[in-house]
Computed example of a mutant assay.
Amino acid sequence: MQRVSDRTWNTAVGYLAAVVFAGIAGFALGATFSTGCPLDPQNAPFGCAEFLLSRYQTMIAAVIAAIAVFPVWRQVRLQGMQTDILKGEALRQRVSTLGRMRNALVTRAKVVREELQLYPERVDNVSFWAHDASQQIDGFLDFVSGQKSLRLDGEQVAAARADLISKLTILSRAFWVMNWDVYLDDEDTPSDEEAAALRDEATEAEARLGATISAALASIGALQLAILEDIGVARTKLHALGENLVSQSE
């Protein structure tokens, strides 16, 4: 259906108002010069036109008000459509940004996943491997935290990201403490008591390393799924807005 411009619409409403007013005035004037209107000089000293206008003023006012509502209603409708258009643009931008975010996450996570899946079957020396893997984990942790700073996460994505950051932090600490004697130089040499505590922590971290890695890998998958679901929600809203705009333009 062809869309009517605002100017054409307003002109049509103006013509309609003029026709209604002319009809009322013509009827009143015609009745003045006929016997169809009983004159009452006290109530209508200026003739039948005044009598009719006074008698039907409520109805006349209602008709005029109804005519006046049409432009206002149309303006409100247009403003609503403009709001939907802006929402649609924002949703399209969100879908695009989330898509790029997820692709970048998948790319970085693939490297980390391949490294972590080497343990334990293809790891000869756990300490050496942990030292090398810790660099990738720390870099990935910075990457995930950097995406958080974009403030695009929905509720589920924010929860999944927070969980992944927590799991990666635990894993990073485990890798570090398993090689604490390598990372600490002479100036940071711990006391005997502190060294004993670090050795105990390293022993526990290595014993739990398999579970810690599994938890981190599961959390990576959960974040990817949460972002994908967030994209789906945004696309659903965008589709609904599109259908609403089409229905309003018909």
Score class of each variant (00 low, 15 high):
residue 1 M to W: 04
residue 3 R to P: 03
residue 13 V to P: 04
residue 14 G to W: 11
residue 14 G to A: 10
residue 17 A to Q: 14
residue 17 A to R: 15
residue 18 A to Y: 06
residue 18 A to G: 05
residue 20 V to F: 15
residue 20 V to Q: 08
residue 20 V to L: 14
residue 21 F to R: 07
residue 21 F to A: 14
residue 23 G to Y: 05
residue 25 A to L: 07
residue 25 A to H: 04
residue 28 A to W: 11
residue 29 L to A: 13
residue 29 L to F: 10
residue 29 L to G: 08
residue 30 G to V: 03
residue 32 T to R: 06
residue 34 S to I: 05
residue 34 S to D: 14
residue 34 S to K: 06
residue 34 S to A: 11
residue 36 G to V: 10
residue 37 C to Q: 14
residue 37 C to I: 10
residue 39 L to C: 03
residue 41 P to T: 08
residue 45 P to V: 12
residue 46 F to C: 02
residue 48 C to K: 07
residue 50 E to Q: 13
residue 50 E to D: 04
residue 54 S to M: 15
residue 55 R to D: 11
residue 58 T to D: 15
residue 58 T to H: 13
residue 58 T to P: 05
residue 60 I to G: 05
residue 62 A to V: 15
residue 62 A to F: 14
residue 63 V to N: 01
residue 64 I to M: 15
residue 66 A to I: 07
residue 66 A to D: 02
residue 67 I to F: 13
residue 67 I to N: 00
residue 67 I to D: 02
residue 68 A to L: 15
residue 68 A to E: 12
residue 70 F to G: 06
residue 72 V to M: 10
residue 72 V to D: 09
residue 77 R to P: 03
residue 77 R to Y: 10
residue 78 L to K: 06
residue 80 G to D: 11
residue 82 Q to W: 06
residue 85 I to L: 14
residue 86 L to V: 05
residue 89 E to F: 11
residue 90 A to C: 00
residue 92 R to M: 06
residue 92 R to L: 08
residue 101 M to S: 09
residue 102 R to H: 11
residue 102 R to P: 01
residue 106 V to K: 12
residue 109 A to E: 14
residue 110 K to R: 11
residue 112 V to I: 09
residue 112 V to W: 04
residue 115 E to F: 05
residue 118 L to Y: 08
residue 118 L to Q: 13
residue 119 Y to I: 01
residue 119 Y to N: 02
residue 122 R to V: 12
residue 124 D to T: 12
residue 124 D to P: 00
residue 125 N to I: 09
residue 126 V to F: 03
residue 128 F to D: 07
residue 128 F to H: 03
residue 129 W to R: 08
residue 130 A to Y: 00
residue 130 A to I: 01
residue 131 H to N: 06
residue 135 Q to R: 08
residue 137 I to K: 00
residue 138 D to G: 09
residue 139 G to H: 07
residue 141 L to T: 10
residue 142 D to C: 02
residue 142 D to S: 09
residue 144 V to E: 00
residue 144 V to T: 01
residue 145 S to C: 01
residue 146 G to V: 01
residue 146 G to W: 02
residue 146 G to S: 12
residue 149 S to A: 13
residue 150 L to N: 08
residue 154 G to A: 05
residue 156 Q to V: 14
residue 157 V to S: 15
residue 157 V to M: 07
residue 157 V to W: 01
residue 158 A to N: 13
residue 158 A to M: 11
residue 159 A to Y: 03
residue 163 D to F: 04
residue 163 D to L: 11
residue 164 L to V: 03
residue 164 L to D: 01
residue 167 K to D: 13
residue 170 I to C: 01
residue 172 S to I: 05
residue 181 D to A: 10
residue 186 D to M: 07
residue 190 P to E: 08
residue 191 S to V: 07
residue 191 S to G: 15
residue 192 D to N: 05
residue 193 E to T: 11
residue 199 R to W: 04
residue 199 R to L: 10
residue 200 D to L: 14
residue 205 A to S: 15
residue 207 A to Y: 12
residue 208 R to L: 14
residue 210 G to M: 02
residue 210 G to L: 03
residue 214 S to T: 12
residue 216 A to N: 07
residue 218 A to P: 10
residue 222 A to W: 02
residue 224 Q to M: 12
residue 230 D to W: 05
residue 230 D to E: 14
residue 232 G to R: 04
residue 234 A to W: 10
residue 237 K to R: 12
residue 238 L to Q: 04
residue 238 L to C: 07
residue 239 H to G: 06
residue 239 H to A: 08
residue 241 L to C: 00
residue 242 G to L: 04
residue 244 N to I: 02
residue 244 N to F: 09
residue 245 L to P: 02
residue 246 V to P: 00
residue 247 S to I: 14
residue 250 E to C: 03
